[in-house]
Each structure stands twice: as structure tokens, then as C-alpha cells.
């Protein structure tokens, strides 16, 4: 391990933060670096031992970092940069405490932003299930998340979602601009990058021809994307794909009169209950298996309905809780 000079000039700049999880031989992951500057704030509670320690080769501690901003949001012009480095086999849970609020900007050109960069190495894993971003009326925000996977390796389960604003005050997609770009790159040993996935959402009210944001959102109050990849989340991805296949057909009719009561398994009963809940929350979703990812898109009338749905899906499959612990689902409560 390299010796770091405690008196070295601080390299940190306003709004910059850094998280490094490295591996202390033989197999103890440690939070080597945790630095941040206003307006960004990072809080790392004690690492939690892995609930399922059957695999003795794997690290036994799961680190968690809460991503906060002073005032619970970003004021116009604020920009936050976060760099995360995950050493081989380490795992990290990233969380927020409440939705990230984007406050009103004096002019649509004053844009606040967040840039997150995560470097994965062999078998590193990230579980990033934050609260949704909440852009207030007349706000402008751009965020970019870049995930670099060394040799395409690494496991990730990342949710990126946004809601219509302060629903209680009647705000409905009434911000100037919200864009969120997720990029996943494969990086070769020589440092060559190739794009694996790009998911770019552009909600810009000033577009010349597109209809108003409310019209474009078609009655939804929240919209999100879940990106799933890697060995640790393989079964989760498969679960989303299977459940998508099992959704009832749209516009289908039930031809039998349903006189015979079929014996349903517990799983089937839970599925039917979830589908009923989806219908009442106006939740629509789709899943696609592409380029080694499972990409889930969902929308719902309200944040609450979406939380119920994501949490149901993740809990009934179970692997996120098994490999990261219950805390990973903190924001979905």
C-alpha cells in the first residue's frame, strides 16, 4: 500500500467528492478514501458484514455511502462531481436521503448538474438505488453517470429516476430542463474504451417542435430506468425478463368464465397481487435483454407506486438483499 502524505495539499475542489474502496489482503474491503467538499456531502455509516457469508473467498463487509447535498438539493448553478473507484471484488451501496431537489433557477441558462464516474475492476459490484430526482418548477438540471467496466467485468444494479416536481403544489413537469445520461463503457487493458450502453433522457421544454413536457409524459408522474448487469445480478435480470413475459396480454380477453377454481402457488398469488397493484398505481414497465444488460423502463402515476413496485420486484427475487443486505433498499421504503 502506498504511503500518503498527511500534509499534502488538498486536491479537492468545491463540489468534488471521491470514494475509493480498496481491498486489504487477504480479503477485507476498506473505505480507503472518502473526501468531499461543499455543496456535496458524503456520509459512510459502518460497513455491514455480508449477511450470507457462505462464499468465504468473497469480502465479508459491505460499505455504504450516502450521497447528500446541503439543503437536500442543488441550487441553480451548483455542480457536483463524484468519483468512485471499486477495487477487485469490492462492493458498494450508494444511497440518498430523500429525493434530490433541484431548486428554481433565475434563468434557464443557469443549469445545475451532477457528474458521477464509477470505475469497476474485476468482480467489483455497485448497487445504486437512490430516491428520485425532483426538479422544481423553473429549474434546469443535467446529470451524467459514467460507468467504466474494466474488460467489461463488474456487476451493477442502478436505478435512475425522475419525478414531476412538487406534486403537492400541483407541479407537473414544469421545469425548464432535465437531462440524465447513463453510459457504460468497456475499458480494455490498454485503456481503449468502447460503448456498451447509452441511455440518454432529454426533457427540455424549449425544444422547437416537441410537444409540452406534460403531453410527452402521457399522464405519468414518475419515470425511470433500471440498469442491471454482471454475474451478481444475473438472476435479478432474468427475474425481470421472466416477469415481463408473464405480464397479461394487452387487449386480451378471458374466454373461460372462471368457474373452476384453480389451485395457485404462492408465487402465482404474489404475482397476481403485484399485477393488480401495478394496475391501480398506473404502473407500466418493459424489460429488454440487450448487450449483456437487462434494461428496465418504468413509469407510474406517483413516486409511491413506483417505490412499491421496485421494492416488490427486488424483494421477491431476493438476490439484492442476499448479496448487499437490506440497507441497499433503504430508499425504496
Amino acid at each position: 500500500m502506498s504511503f500518503s502524505n498527511p500534509f499534502a495539499a488538498s486536491a479537492s475542489r468545491p463540489g468534488y467528492g471521491e470514494i475509493v474502496i480498496s481491498l486489504l489482503p487477504p480479503a477485507t474491503p476498506v473505505l480507503k478514501t472518502l473526501s468531499y467538499q461543499y455543496p456535496l456531502k458524503l456520509i459512510a455509516p459502518d460497513a455491514i458484514p455480508l449477511p450470507d457469508a457462505r462464499n468465504t473467498d468473497a469480502p465479508t463487509l459491505i460499505h455504504t455511502v450516502f450521497l447528500l447535498t446541503y439543503g437536500g438539493g442543488l441550487v441553480a448553478g451548483d455542480t457536483v462531481h463524484l468519483n468512485v473507484t471499486l477495487d477487485p471484488t469490492t462492493k458498494l451501496i450508494l444511497l440518498t436521503q430523500g429525493s434530490t431537489k433541484i431548486f428554481k433557477t433565475p434563468s434557464r441558462d443557469v443549469v445545475s448538474g451532477q457528474r458521477t464516474n464509477v470505475d469497476f475492476t474485476l468482480n467489483a459490484a455497485l448497487c445504486y438505488l437512490p430516491d428520485p430526482v425532483q426538479p422544481f418548477e423553473q429549474s434546469a438540471f443535467e446529470q451524467v453517470q459514467v460507468y467504466n467496466l474494466k474488460e467489461s467485468q463488474g456487476s451493477m444494479c442502478v436505478c435512475d429516476w425522475v419525478c414531476e416536481g412538487r406534486s403537492a403544489r400541483g407541479e407537473k413537469w414544469s421545469f425548464y430542463k432535465y437531462t440524465s445520461k447513463n453510459e457504460v463503457w468497456s475499458v480494455t487493458k490498454e485503456g481503449k474504451k468502447r460503448l456498451l450502453l447509452r441511455d440518454n433522457l432529454i426533457l427540455d421544454e424549449s425544444g422547437k417542435v416537441a410537444s409540452s413536457l406534460v403531453d410527452r409524459m402521457d399522464g405519468l408522474g414518475v419515470f425511470g430506468t433500471i440498469i442491471i448487469r454482471g454475474p451478481l445480478f444475473e438472476s435479478l435480470g432474468k427475474y425481470f425478463m421472466d416477469e415481463f413475459q408473464l405480464l397479461p396480454r394487452i387487449g386480451g380477453r378471458k374466454w373461460d368464465t372462471g368457474t373452476e377454481e384453480e389451485e395457485l402457488s404462492l408465487e402465482e398469488v404474489q404475482r397476481l397481487a403485484r399485477q393488480k397493484q401495478e394496475a391501480s398505481d398506473g404502473l407500466v414497465w418493459s424489460a429488454a435483454s440487450i448487450r449483456g444488460f437487462v434494461l428496465v423502463k418504468f413509469g407510474a402515476k406517483e413516486v409511491e407506486g413506483a417505490k412499491i413496485w421496485i421494492s416488490h420486484m427486488l424483494k421477491s427475487e431476493g438476490s439484492v438483499e442476499r448479496s448487499f443486505g437490506e440497507r441497499a433498499l433503504h430508499c425504496l421504503k
Binding site: D199, N200, L201, I202, L203, D204, G207, A210, R216, M217, D218, L220, F223, V284, W285, S286, K297, F298, G299
Partner: peptide, 8 residues
């Protein structure tokens, strides 16, 4: 994507 529901 400027119309996210389109993907749905």
C-alpha cells in the same frame, strides 16, 4: 430520448 414513454 425526448419522449421516454415511447420506449414503454
Amino acid at each position: 430520448q425526448t419522449v421516454p414513454v415511447m420506449d414503454l
